[in-house]
């Protein structure tokens, strides 16, 4: 991947719009553990209440967990229907490898105010810019920007996320 050194073999994981994303302290604690962050402000609501921002804060990348509140999120097994991970067989869904895959190339956040436990967000996504580059191994790489606005229950903008995904016309080899 030397031509596009910032492109990873990371599948796209862009959350879709969600109508209701309650930000809860237990979820924040679980997320903070998951990113190996031991800061007590994520685990102790009393300490958080006494801190500068006066509540349990969300870690900087927490809004990515809005995927939990997208009823149709594709990277979570549905209650019924096949799943592409392993079970009885190595995969439950045979996909056409010629389709290539989507990769997560960049992720950017703008914070308009601190996000705290107790906030209830909604998210709306829109397409941003699109562009194309020629891949080093042949085949076009299609870059697509998605902008997601996370607003609180009063409609105030809290976080703006800008995600750049890239689609390849072929299976992506490891760099």
């Amino acid at each position: 991947m030397t031509l596009y050194p910032y492109m990873s073999d990371e599948p796209e994981e862009i959350p879709m719009p969600v109508s209701r994303f309650p930000v809860e302290s237990a979820h924040i604690a679980m997320f903070a553990r998951a990113i190996a962050d031991p800061n007590p402000v994520y685990y102790d609501p009393d300490q958080a209440a006494a801190s500068e921002i006066g509540g349990v804060p969300a870690p900087p990348t927490f809004v990515q967990a809005s995927a939990q509140f997208d009823p149709d999120y594709l990277l979570r097994p549905a209650f019924d229907g096949p799943w592409f991970g392993s079970g009885r067989d190595a995969t439950g869904v045979v996909r056409d490898p010629a389709q290539g895959g989507g990769l997560h190339a960049e992720q950017h956040y703008t914070y308009h105010r601190p996000l705290l436990a107790g906030d209830v967000l909604s998210a709306i996504s829109r397409d941003g810019e699109q562009w194309e580059k020629q891949g080093r191994r042949g085949g076009a790489l299609q870059f697509r920007e998605t902008i997601t606005e996370y607003r609180d229950s009063s409609g105030e903008l809290v976080v703006t996320a800008r995600s750049i995904g890239v689609r390849t016309g072929q299976v992506v080899e490891q760099g």
Partner: peptide, 9 residues
């Protein structure tokens, strides 16, 4: 588990 991205990769 925390993020909700269960991609088997």
């Amino acid at each position: 588990g925390a993020s909700g991205d269960y991609n088997p990769l």
